[in-house]
């Protein structure tokens, strides 16, 4: 594709999703836009990029195609093991009065993370407990995939234990569909992590894995600041394994305690810092009353 086309599409994606496509990623952009370009009857990627610039439907389609992440069930395993072995027992003890857990999959992509957690809860949640799993993403196409809860054979092979496949899925044509009892645990909502968050409440566990790496540093820091009030004071935030070592400015660093659970490092809201973080932040428009008020 022409450098000018790449620049156009990269700046569109950056503007709409804050995700950065560096110049050497041209092949990736081409590979992802190629099927759309053919579908739209364009003779070249450059022609398709022109169409994207004037057609909102194609614009949304191309953004969706460029924000897809490779993902698997129980990705990296260790976080899920840490969840069932350590975090869940702690939360069950702490929430014994309410008997309700809330979990946020904060860049849910096609939903494997949210449904993986749902499967574990189906196996480990004691009777009488309820759970609410919120799955959010910047891509509306991804959100409809989560709602449809259908996965291709190739996707099913990625980390899904065979025993869970036969227990939690039914064949639906060439795809596999999540059983209704699990689907009912997961609700979806459109949310751009790079923008101020809507009122979504607080969560016992927030999964923000393998998504910060797609943002530039100021945006990453902004997200980690804004997500803080949405993690319950005794809750957990899980980042991707390569994301726990990101350099943070001192004030942001002080907002989070790090706790090693097995092979996983969890972030937890720092108790000492809790009183100091509500004071002015670098982005005053983000620290809205509703968000600070959402803290327990």
């Amino acid at each position: 594709m022409a450098p000018a086309s790449f620049e156009l599409i990269a700046s569109l994606v950056l503007r709409e999703t804050s995700i950065i496509y560096e110049p050497r990623k041209e092949y990736l952009v081409e590979a992802r836009l190629h099927p759309l370009s053919v579908q739209a009857g364009c003779s070249s990627i450059d022609e398709y990029v022109q169409l994207v610039m004037r057609n909102p439907v194609e614009r949304q389609k191309s953004i969706d195609a460029l924000t897809i992440n490779e993902t698997s069930w129980f990705r990296d395993n260790a976080p899920y093991q840490a969840f069932t072995e350590t975090m869940l027992p702690a939360l069950l003890a702490a929430r014994a009065d309410r008997r309700r857990l809330s979990i946020w999959s904060a860049a849910c992509s096609s939903g494997q993370e949210a449904y993986s957690i749902a499967m574990l809860l189906d196996q480990h949640l004691p009777p009488g407990w309820t759970v609410d799993i919120l799955a959010t993403d910047v891509s509306t196409a991804m959100l409809s995939r989560v709602q449809n809860a259908r996965y291709s054979q190739v996707e099913m092979n990625r980390g899904m234990p065979a025993t869970s496949l036969v227990k939690y899925f039914n064949r639906a044509g060439t795809e596999w569909e999540v059983v209704p009892s699990l689907r009912s645990l997961v609700r979806t909502r459109h949310l751009n992590l790079a923008e101020p968050f809507p009122m979504i409440g607080t969560f016992d566990l927030v999964l923000l894995r393998n998504v910060l790496i797609y943002f530039d540093q100021p945006t990453r820091h902004g997200i980690l600041r804004r997500i803080h009030p949405h993690v319950a004071s005794d809750g957990y935030l899980l980042l991707g394994s390569s994301e726990t070592t990101l350099d943070l400015p001192a004030d942001l660093n002080a907002m989070w305690d790090r706790e090693q659970i097995g092979r996983v490092q969890a972030h937890r809201p720092a108790t000492q810092a809790a009183s100091t973080i509500a004071v002015p932040r670098p982005h005053p428009h983000i620290a809205s009353g509703s968000l600070t008020g959402a803290r327990p």
Partner: peptide, 18 residues
């Protein structure tokens, strides 16, 4: 365990990790 063809290399690696 059970892997359905077609599969990607990652699928085999992840199943073995399981």
């Amino acid at each position: 365990e059970y892997v359905i063809k077609p599969f990607t290399p990652d699928a085999i690696v992840e199943k073995l990790e399981l």
